[in-house]
Design a protein around this nucleic acid. Structure first.
Lengths: 156, 156
DNA sequence: TAAACTCGACAACGTGGTTGACCATAACGT
DNA sequence: ACGTTATGGTCAACCACGTTGTCGAGTTTA
């Protein structure tokens, strides 16, 4: 049992608050830099698409959602000008989703902003403490291959 | 600039993975203990309702969403048997949302499970390291009064 | 008492998730 | 070579949860 000092429910709250504060700051800065329409979900989807591009089905697998849901996200990204669908010449069924120049730009900027935000943590806490937090989290919750169906996961 | 070791984008991923892993374990255990239908969003809403109960409008304020959205969440909780609406005798407009016995039970169980999950972190990392993580997060992202419109926030 | 505010509800809509169905195309096993 | 199976993309219907706008009923306040 853990009748230690803090209540156990604080830990998840803090983790979420940390996550949310970083993502909010990212998108505020992204908006300032010419990408006001990107939502968190779009950023994660674009990250999953990557430079080589993917099919909608594969995107669904990476994001942990159905291919139909992935298709809808691609629709949205296409409509916002961040991705495009091109026919695969080698496979008549496939349409490869690729990032547009604008999509790549947003991803590059996001990477820089993330580095900058982490630097602020280092400023406030020291590099060692931030590294310790990361190490602790890596131990308890590997961030590899997790699902990004945040909206659906939390709600319904 | 932060051209240190890890890429900055890993930190938010780790924070989210930590949050999600705790919440997922909580709900797996909650399901095992007789509450299979509670979703994360419901838990947060019930936490915001609390033992004294609130009006839907006030709940919306606490959760950072519109009163209509809060009302829908209450509909859902009512339908699941976790909350009920009772007329306020002192104010003909108000209907106070109160947790049912089942709602209170789920909240009590959740508190115990949260403590237990934190204890697992302490087992794996040591009490001091967990406390340091919490302290770091408290510094960077106070968990007080934040918004729980997770689904809407992440998506649309 | 009249005006202003608040609460709860209804409607319409946007976004993103789900399943189920369907057709076109590839890949595979006789 | 050909029929079966698997895969990819899309359409339709539905659900959950958020939004804004409107409205009637009840309270507060000037």
């Amino acid at each position: 049992m853990a009748e230690s000092d803090p209540y156990g429910f604080e830990l998840p709250l803090l983790l979420f608050a940390g996550f949310r504060s970083i993502i909010d700051q990212l998108h505020a800065e992204l908006a300032r830099q010419g990408h006001p329409d990107v939502r968190p979900a779009h950023g994660f989807a674009m990250q999953a698409i990557g430079l080589p591009g993917v099919t909608a089905s594969e995107l669904g697998r990476r994001l942990g959602v159905s291919k139909q849901a992935a298709g809808k996200t691609v629709d949205r990204l296409e409509q916002l000008g961040y991705a495009e669908r091109v026919d695969d010449p080698d496979d008549g069924r496939r349409k490869v989703v690729r990032l547009t120049a604008r999509g790549v730009d947003s991803l590059n900027r996001a990477a820089l902003i993330f580095d900058e935000l982490r630097a602020r943590w280092v400023e406030a806490l020291g590099g060692q403490r931030v590294a310790e937090v990361e190490a602790a989290l890596r131990t308890m919750a590997p961030a590899s291959g997790f699902h990004l169906d945040v909206a659906g996961w939390f709600g319904s």
